[in-house]
């Protein structure tokens, strides 16, 4: 593998197409950005919730990548379970995503039953 400092900008960008920590983090950042775009740009509440799931998945990917890197750092760390902690918190994120989907979809169903819409342009009962 070419060292990062000798590769040049485009060589460094080409180096993202291999299995490295930087490329995992770049992939997670890209997925997070796509999810944030979905939350900002879509008007359907259901698709906004799906985009939130995308962002949570990107954060999970970051946690697991750092856990894979930290398992070889070993005795230099003060936390003896630092590597396993990344995967444990990814599991916690899965649990929180399930809870968030349940509550969010319950709110969507409850709102749709009252107003017959899931469009954010129509959801303005508390405006002004």
């Amino acid at each position: 593998m070419v060292p990062l400092a000798e590769a040049g900008v485009f060589g460094w960008l080409l180096g993202l197409f291999s299995f490295k920590l930087v490329s995992c983090l770049a992939l997670a950042g890209a997925i997070f950005a796509i999810g944030a775009w979905g939350v900002l740009a879509r008007r359907n509440v259901l698709v906004m919730l799906i985009s939130v799931e995308l962002m949570l998945n990107a954060v999970m990917l970051t946690f697991v990548s750092f856990s894979r890197a930290l398992v070889n750092m070993g005795p230099q760390l003060s936390n003896p379970y630092a590597a396993e902690g990344g995967q444990i918190f990814a599991l916690f994120i899965i649990a929180i995503a399930a809870a968030e989907a349940a509550v969010g979809l319950a709110i969507v169903i409850s709102y749709f039953r009252n107003r017959q819409t899931v469009d954010t342009r129509e959801i303005r009962a508390m405006k002004n």
């Binding site: 060292p3 990062l4 400092a5 490295k20 920590l21 890197a69 750092m73």
Partner: peptide, 11 residues
């Protein structure tokens, strides 16, 4: 360009 850190090598 950022140099390769200890975490990159450990990965």
């Amino acid at each position: 360009i950022p140099a390769e850190s200890a975490l990159d090598r450990a990965f």
